[in-house]
């Protein structure tokens, strides 16, 4: 029985894979149908997960255990559900405000303590590395570190978008910012190239994995 259900699932996967690949030939109705089924199924799956792992585990269970504090999130959740109705939508705003306020604080705290401190420290770590070494290795590390520091700073300056308004001329940033910004563009172009190559690599890995699945399934049936 278990074997049979597994085979059925494999057949479904096989067919779905082929249908989606058909998109290369054009936006055919069968592909649209599969897309609609996928969205419906994913939405249904998420609904069940939220019902079980959020509504039951986080709201119902504490209430059943007698926690009165749990009434507050219950009330806020009820208010948030009002967002579904255009008339009562405004009642959901306080719940949204709580979400946004907490989210903003988490973003601020995380950015300061996590990325800003960590990455600034990371950008300067070469100084310690160079100190730990001696001779030409130390010098090499120092040069490399300065190069990367310059790249980091220049990239940051590229995002400095303000420019001076000059009468009768195009708005222009200060020359030093423009210079650093130009260097930053070089680093950004290389970095974005690497990211783009990464996206293609990930996609082609998915292609390899799908091709492996199709071939493996075919070979299994042939044998």
């Amino acid at each position: 029985m278990s074997f049979n259900t597994e085979v059925i699932w494999v057949v479904i996967s096989f067919i779905l894979t082929l249908v989606v690949f058909s998109f290369l030939l054009g936006d055919i109705p069968f592909f649209r149908f599969v897309s609609a089924v996928l969205i419906g199924m994913t939405a249904g799956y998420m609904t069940i997960v939220i019902i079980y792992q959020v509504l039951i585990a986080r709201l119902a269970v504490p209430l059943l255990q007698g926690s009165r504090v749990a009434l507050i999130p219950l009330l806020l959740s009820g208010m948030l559900l009002m967002k579904l109705s255009p008339r009562l939508s405004r009642l959901g705003n306080p719940s949204m405000a709580l979400l946004v306020g907490v989210g903003a604080a988490v973003a601020v705290g995380g950015a300061v303590l996590g990325t800003l401190f960590g990455q600034v420290k990371g950008a300067l770590v070469f100084v310690d590395l160079a100190r730990a070494q001696k001779g030409p290795t130390s010098l090499l590390l120092l040069v490399e570190g300065i190069f990367f520091l310059l790249g980091t700073l220049a990239t940051l300056f590229y995002f400095h978008f303000s420019a001076r308004k000059v009468k009768g001329k195009e708005p222009q940033a200060h020359w030093s910012i423009r210079l650093l910004s130009s260097v930053g563009r070089v680093f950004i172009a290389i970095t974005l190239g690497a990211v783009f190559a990464g996206v293609i690599t990930a996609g082609l890995t998915a292609l390899v994995e799908r091709a492996d699945f199709l071939l493996g399934t075919l070979l299994f049936w042939v044998r």
Binding site: A104, A105, A107, V108, G110, A111, V112, G114, T115, L116, Q119, V120, G122, A123, F147, F148, L149, L150, G151, T152, L153, A154, T155, L156, Y158, F159, G184, F187, I188, I190, T191, L192, G193, A194, V195
Partner: peptide, 22 residues
Amino acid sequence: VPMAGARGMLLGIALGSLATGI
């Protein structure tokens, strides 16, 4: 080389998040 650019971008993103959060 992309690490330098990526670090600059991450710092930029962090500064952006900071500003938006505030």
